[in-house]
Design a protein around this nucleic acid. Structure first.
Lengths: 200, 200
DNA sequence: AGCACTTGTGAACAAACGTTCATTTAATTA
DNA sequence: TAATTAAATGAACGTTTGTTCACAAGTGCT
């Protein structure tokens, strides 16, 4: 009973990952049972243990995969040297990457507290690496005078919180298109760091 | 065994509320058991039911109390008519109010999903009312030209996410004083909404 | 056809969960 | 001091939890 159709459909492990991401995102890791996840996939709870050692492992795998994909995708994007352009590139990248991965983002951002050691340390470092990418852009702009950012670390946390907050209220089919929302946030990010006396 | 000392010390219900807020904030509602809360207070789990009907009731009471305190405190603060001044007043109020209530803020912001009906609706309306306060300030400033904010609703969500995000990283005794952090965020909020061509 | 392997079932386990309750204890009132 | 009441105990309940296991079923290789 290994496979039903040749190529059609993802395998069980992938479907379980997606089901888990959706349920964790909506209800939180602790509120979701292995039976809930299994039911969504259409299998018994025991069968999940053919693919994941423990529930905690499933969460850690979900979060680590997401953070690694995020970092890899940003590294592919060759960020411009100019700080203002780099900031816009990062902002657009961040919003676009998160647009179709709302569940993963939610989990990666809210369930750090559900990770046990050493999973926590490993994934926290990935998250920190991503924030450092933005921080370096801001720090460079602050040095060259392209940005007003007396505390790049604070500005980084503020911007990331602002950008990631979109996933809390964005719903598909809403009044504004994803592109319109993206432009609005890019504009706010740019203005928040604009040096006194000029905007763009 | 009703009371130990005359006036000294809060009563058991209050201590349980605070313990619950701390544990819910750190581990999440679903991950905390009534026994955990009771242990923190130094009583048996059953004794909690002399003060709260259910665990869900305890959470709802925590969140509703917090939101009502927040709204009441803002209504006491007489916001200036001038949009720019009102924005600064709101920003400072928000950050100060949240400074000493990190646990409550965390719970009120992250555990909406743990509320069952009708608790969810009731508390969601309180939260919405608070956001409307900021939205009206921004909308007025957008009309008068004091702000650049083509979509006041979006700007509201962006600013609230940015401000509330502080609770995710702020730790007492850190490098920057609360006042310094407050000033930095006020500055970023003002700049994010500054009309093209001028800053203050 | 036969073997090894992967993936599923479904019952079972011990532990932990929210909640209830008969009972005791301490403080308050009369 | 006796009666009343509020609050705590600690055992017990039925349910759900994560996880395990003996077993069956389908697949690919030789």
């Amino acid at each position: 009973m290994a496979r039903l159709a040749g190529v059609t459909g993802k395998d069980t492990a992938d479907r379980a990952r997606r089901a888990a991401a959706e349920l964790f995102a909506r209800h939180g890791y602790a509120a979701v049972s292995m039976r809930d996840i299994a039911a969504e996939v259409g299998i018994g709870a025991g069968a999940l243990y053919n693919h994941f050692a423990t529930k905690q492992d499933l969460l850690a795998e979900l979060m680590e995969d997401h953070m690694k994909r995020l970092l890899a995708a940003w590294e592919e994007e060759s960020a411009p040297d100019d700080p203002a352009e780099a900031l816009e590139a990062f902002t657009r990248f961040h919003m676009r990457f998160h647009r179709n991965r709302q569940d993963d983002v939610h989990v990666a951002y809210m369930e750090l507290r559900s990770l046990e050691q050493p999973n926590f340390h490993r994934i926290e470092r990935l998250r920190s690496a991503y924030e450092t990418e933005l921080e370096q852009i801001i720090a460079k702009g602050a040095e060259t005078g392209a940005f007003h950012a007396p505390e790049p670390k604070i500005a980084t946390m503020a911007l990331i919180a602002m950008l990631t907050g979109v996933t809390n209220w964005y719903r598909q089919g809403g009044r504004l298109s994803p592109n319109a929302i993206e432009d609005l946030y890019v504009d706010m990010a740019r203005r928040a760091l604009a040096p006194t006396g000029g905007t763009a």
